[in-house]
Every structure is written in structure tokens, then in C-alpha cells.
Design a protein around this nucleic acid. Structure first.
Lengths: 102, 102
DNA sequence: AGAACATATGAACATATGATCATATATTAA
DNA sequence: TTAATATATGATCATATGTTCATATGTTCT
């Protein structure tokens, strides 16, 4: 196929797509999203369940929030997080499922 | 939900899933896979079309081959690459499509 | 065998990433 | 207001990542 016959992705699309996959490319973030797909959780609960420090979790939640993959809700001292992007959640679940049977 | 009531992903699954997403998390690899989804290509053609060096392309193809996402076929001096994982290709295409309409 | 071409690969380098530690901020209770 | 609790955040550090340059390997043609 000649150069001009190809279908090209514009830079912006490529960047956005790579950002989406980057968010899903880290074990801690995968575990967090998988947990939040089961229920809304507060920060310390996530840290307890996943056996990671509060700081590590908080940093990753900030990352995920910035990427619009989770949303936060404050209730007194506690901040509850939940999934905010069903499409990305679906990508994750598809990939987990596919992994299991391969 | 209590710690023991959660559905946990085992370490191996998380690692594999994150490796899959990592492969898709780089702009160059996204462009290569998108190109290979259109046709089998040889290394220099990919480099020409994407306007990147032969070395950069070759390194990324080695990465993708190692991850079993592409396969290679030699024909004389030329090596032709093509996609080897329809599932991962589907993930990529879904994400590209979703990106466009959002 | 030697030249020419296509691809692969190792080293080096700059940047990105993720965890930890210390500390800041926010909220509630005493 | 002070103490206690929950979360956020900046700095630091070790490691990972992606590109480039130089060069090696593999193949074909003369």
C-alpha cells in the first residue's frame, strides 16, 4: 500500500489512546479499578485490601481521577472513590477474561 | 465489603494484563499495529510511512514480537510483519473508535 | 569472495514512572 | 482551640522506557 493510501491516525487520537492504555498498564491501578468495579471504596480500605501504603494508593487515585477513570465523593473525613468510565472498565474486564482462558 | 469477600485477581493475571496494556500504551507501537491491521508490511515500509527511523521501528517490532502481538516472515532480504493477536487488535480498534466519538 | 541492501541489536542517554517518606490539608470530636 | 483521623501532595530515588548511533547479521547479486 502506498503511503497516501493508508488510513492514518491523527496525532491527537494516538496520544489519547496511548494515555488510556497507559492508565491500565500498571498492576496497582489494575487492582484498584478491579476493586472499584465491585464497590465504591474509601482510600484506606483500598490500601488495606490491596496491602499497599495509603500514599501509594492516594497517588494512583489522583492519577486515575486526573484521567477521568474514577470519581471521588467526600463524606466527612472519608473520601469514597468509584469508577467513572464504563468503557475503560469494559476494556479491563475483557482483557482479564481473555487472559484467563489463554 | 470485607477483605475476604472481595474477588481478587491473582498476581500472574494482573501481571499479564498489565503487560498487554503496556504493549498498547506507546504511540509508536499503536501506529505500527494500526498499520499492520491494514496490511502486512516490511520494516522499511513501516519506517517510511510512519516517518521514524528503521532502528526505532525494528526495536518496537522486536518488542511486539516478543509479546506475541506480531509475527514475522522473511522473504529474501525483506522481513514482513503482520498482526498475530486478533484480541489485542480488537482492544485497540475499540479504543480508537471510542476515542473518536468522545 | 565482495558489494549492496534489509534488518537486528547493543550501548548510551534523556525522560518517564511508581514507591516511599515526610509533611500538609481537611474534617470531626473533645 | 487542640488532638485525632483521613487523605493529599511534594521531594527524592531507583528503575523502566524509548530513541539514537554505531555496528552486527543475514541475504542476494556480480
Amino acid at each position: 500500500m502506498l503511503r497516501e493510501e493508508h488510513h492514518f491516525l491523527d496525532t491527537e487520537t494516538v496520544e489519547k489512546v496511548s494515555r488510556t492504555f497507559k492508565a491500565l498498564a500498571d498492576p496497582t491501578r489494575i487492582k484498584i479499578l478491579h476493586l472499584l468495579s465491585q464497590e465504591e471504596c474509601h482510600v484506606n480500605h483500598i490500601a488495606d485490601v490491596l496491602e499497599l501504603t495509603q500514599s501509594a494508593i492516594s497517588h494512583q487515585l489522583a492519577y486515575l481521577k486526573n484521567a477521568h477513570l474514577v470519581k471521588a465523593r467526600r463524606r466527612g473525613k472519608t473520601v469514597y472513590y468509584s469508577c467513572a468510565d464504563q468503557h475503560v472498565l469494559k476494556l479491563l474486564q475483557m482483557t482479564i477474561e481473555h487472559q484467563k482462558c489463554s
